[in-house]
Design a protein around this nucleic acid. Sequence first.
DNA 1: TAATTTGCCTAACGTTCGTTAGGTAATTTA
DNA 2: TAAATTACCTAACGAACGTTAGGCAAATTA
Lengths: 199, 199
Amino acid sequence: MENNTIISRKEQIIQTAEKLFREKGYEAASMRDIAAELGIEAASLYSHIRSKDELLETICFRMADELIKAIDEVNDLYFNAEEKLRMAIQNHVNIVTGDLDASSVFLREWRRLPNPKLKEFIALRHKYEEGFKQILQNGENENVFEAPDKKFAVLTILSALNWIIEWYNPKGNMAPDEIAEHLTEFILTGLRVKSIVNR
Amino acid sequence: MENNTIISRKEQIIQTAEKLFREKGYEAASMRDIAAELGIEAASLYSHIRSKDELLETICFRMADELIKAIDEVNDLYFNAEEKLRMAIQNHVNIVTGDLDASSVFLREWRRLPNPKLKEFIALRHKYEEGFKQILQNGENENVFEAPDKKFAVLTILSALNWIIEWYNPKGNMAPDEIAEHLTEFILTGLRVKSIVNR
DNA sequence: TAATTTGCCTAACGTTCGTTAGGTAATTTA
DNA sequence: TAAATTACCTAACGAACGTTAGGCAAATTA
């Protein structure tokens, strides 16, 4: 069940960076650490990449692009708002659990991006949030969702989705699909007992 | 409307550290940065504190203690589970919005604590989570809450509460009380339109 | 008023950092 | 097979880091 795809040295470096940036944080993980993990000298990394910043950039923007592509697809493919939300959550959970290292860097370390890339990154995040906002608006139009403050609702939903990296264990007893389902259920109906008509 | 309390130099240093650790991150904010903010030399800081680590420790454990004290109080004072949850959320939001710098360090930078303090810190966090778990259990016993996986529910709730630091603006148009109310409502009932009996 | 403490200073320490320069084998291309 | 490229190396750079040593004037205490 191995991934036998041959990947370039540059890709190996990026993956190692993902791992170490996640474990130690961007500034605490040194180029020497990354090199050591690959069994080479730090200086040798510069045959493949331009700078440490470039590594962070690549990781953050790659994840952002993947997420945006997913939300755009959902908004294109489905009509029903509830179905859209369900799929958007499913995609997000799959992407995040599918690459915990990259996701953790994307969610925690993006702050260390130097401008102007930082601004560009924040714009992409807003674009992603906008995709969710649109789904909530659809739901309101269809009269299936109630969210007085859409921006607030989106941030709250995303917080729950993003917190996954803090507790998800690939070897644990909760599969990504299950997580997505649980989260969707929670986001749609909340804690209160359902058999009682609310209020 | 100023706070005229005289605070010690050590306290000034801690507050400056909170601000800079939040803005730049723990490793990127140097002792020289902190000193410069106070108009003194880096070496002078060591008349008041032992190390940079000590600063992080103080900030993280102070917040942890405050939160745990609050949840314990809630679990002692109130009987009704829904009321407990409401108050726990209210307290959390008040504490976090009341000191954004310290909260951000507490939530983001705790990872850089050196062992054994790191383990101690994680234990405190679990204790806090346990306080929320108890409320959900109460709610289940009272037959007002439905949460098949309590651990999961607690983490999801806390994620929403903790994400506040990412978007809250003290000068914005949402007061802490309002935020707490919105969050409580969302956590209790979710997105789905309430007038329709579920299912 | 004499003695002590406080809060800062300058100078420097040893270490680590990202990165560059220049070289050298092994591999690939012409 | 000759030329070019690739992927690494050693050595070193300047800068920044946390922290220590030792000193000195002002404030506090005895």
